[in-house]
Measured scan of single mutants.
Amino acid sequence: MSRVPSPPPPAEMSSGPVAESWCYTQIKVVKFSYMWTINNFSFCREEMGEVIKSSTFSSGANDKLKWCLRVNPKGLDEESKDYLSLYLLLVSCPKSEVRAKFKFSILNAKGEETKAMESQRAYRFVQGKDWGFKKFIRRDFLLDEANGLLPDDKLTLFCEVSVVQDSVNISGQNTMNMVKVPECRLADELGGLWENSRFTDCCLCVAGQEFQAHKAILAARSPVFSAMFEHEMEESKKNRVEINDVEPEVFKEMMCFIYTGKAPNLDKMADDLLAAADKYALERLKVMCEDALCSNLSVENAAEILILADLHSADQLKTQAVDFINYHASDVLETSGWKSMVVSHPHLVAEAYRSLASAQCPFLGPPRKRLKQS
């Protein structure tokens, strides 16, 4: 649940008159999402009104509101027999009622949201009550392989729920002597030191190019640089560091992050930047690179990204790559990247197969709970 924001200063709310007192009302909304995959969808019983329910879910471990999704594969009634019906059901509720908006969509073979439908307002739910769409999607369109909505005969539904909580009022009075504290510009100011090479005390040599930097900042941000300058190493004695395995453009992006906490060109060089972040123990930059690479996972590059993640101990990226390969196994196994990995990294192939087997055979063990970014 997000923290209630402070109200904007009255002088910034309007260029008009300023009242002596004010009130700011925040209506709290808890948002969460749920993904439900139905394997072997074409084998569902086709009687009209037949119901399939998901397991229950909530916004978190401490949330007492429990929900589930309900599907009628062949419609709810005679009117909707040519459609799939989809509903959000409130299973248990400690209150007399709650209000919530919802959005349903289908994830296609690429994991993209399609055929989205959402409620136009927050509906009133009581325990045992459901709301949804009797005519969510035509069955003939859903079952047509050309539309790519049932890869490997799996129907994957994605649901986003927004639950309306209580409202909170914050009130106060205006004073004539309003003090406005300026925003912190530390990142910009440190970035200026790097860009202008002011007050530098060490030189970093990268592929024949020299960059002036500040030992204190490098040591504070990177345990690797800290070790170089702290001990009686040649880098500490000469205040000069030779860097041979990072390209200059990648190095500059890494230094921008060290000084400012930002990497504006990360998406263009996420793979190389991940390697640099791993070498210099820049954990936050490493996770930022993992996130960017996750966003660009595809059938063509899944094997290469899995190898990269394994090489640099990028655990979150590795998990996402394995899950992606499992979901698109029939396509990924035909790529040149996968065939190369079979020869060069057989242990990763074995890991992917083990994960695929456990996903398809849940009876082999208890269900695993899916539970950071600093």
Score class of each variant (00 low, 15 high):
residue 3 R to S: 08
residue 7 P to E: 12
residue 7 P to Y: 05
residue 10 P to S: 11
residue 12 E to L: 06
residue 19 A to P: 05
residue 20 E to M: 01
residue 21 S to D: 05
residue 21 S to F: 08
residue 23 C to R: 02
residue 26 Q to Y: 09
residue 29 V to Y: 15
residue 37 T to P: 01
residue 40 N to I: 05
residue 40 N to A: 06
residue 41 F to D: 08
residue 42 S to D: 07
residue 44 C to V: 12
residue 46 E to Y: 07
residue 48 M to K: 02
residue 63 D to V: 02
residue 65 L to Y: 13
residue 67 W to G: 01
residue 73 P to F: 09
residue 76 L to W: 05
residue 80 S to E: 08
residue 84 L to W: 07
residue 85 S to I: 00
residue 86 L to W: 15
residue 90 L to V: 12
residue 92 S to Q: 04
residue 95 K to G: 10
residue 96 S to D: 14
residue 97 E to K: 12
residue 98 V to E: 14
residue 98 V to D: 09
residue 103 K to T: 15
residue 104 F to I: 11
residue 105 S to A: 11
residue 107 L to P: 12
residue 110 K to Q: 10
residue 115 K to C: 04
residue 122 A to L: 13
residue 126 V to E: 02
residue 128 G to P: 15
residue 129 K to C: 11
residue 129 K to F: 13
residue 131 W to P: 00
residue 132 G to C: 00
residue 133 F to E: 00
residue 133 F to Q: 13
residue 133 F to D: 08
residue 136 F to N: 03
residue 143 L to H: 13
residue 150 L to D: 02
residue 151 P to M: 11
residue 151 P to E: 09
residue 151 P to D: 09
residue 155 L to A: 11
residue 158 F to M: 10
residue 161 V to C: 05
residue 163 V to I: 08
residue 164 V to C: 09
residue 166 D to Q: 10
residue 167 S to F: 07
residue 169 N to C: 03
residue 172 G to C: 02
residue 177 N to H: 04
residue 182 P to E: 01
residue 184 C to Q: 05
residue 188 D to W: 08
residue 191 G to W: 03
residue 192 G to L: 09
residue 195 E to Y: 07
residue 195 E to M: 06
residue 195 E to L: 10
residue 200 T to L: 14
residue 210 E to Y: 15
residue 212 Q to W: 13
residue 213 A to Q: 15
residue 214 H to L: 03
residue 214 H to E: 00
residue 215 K to W: 11
residue 219 A to E: 09
residue 225 F to I: 15
residue 227 A to W: 11
residue 227 A to T: 05
residue 232 E to D: 09
residue 233 M to K: 14
residue 237 K to W: 05
residue 241 V to G: 04
residue 258 I to L: 04
residue 259 Y to P: 01
residue 263 A to S: 03
residue 272 D to M: 02
residue 272 D to H: 01
residue 279 K to L: 04
residue 281 A to P: 00
residue 290 E to P: 00
residue 290 E to W: 12
residue 292 A to N: 06
residue 295 S to M: 10
residue 299 V to C: 08
residue 302 A to C: 03
residue 308 L to M: 08
residue 311 L to D: 08
residue 315 D to L: 13
residue 318 K to R: 04
residue 319 T to K: 10
residue 319 T to D: 10
residue 319 T to W: 06
residue 319 T to G: 06
residue 325 I to K: 01
residue 327 Y to F: 09
residue 331 D to E: 13
residue 335 T to H: 13
residue 338 W to K: 00
residue 341 M to R: 00
residue 347 H to Q: 03
residue 358 S to A: 03
residue 365 G to T: 12
residue 371 L to W: 13
residue 374 S to H: 14
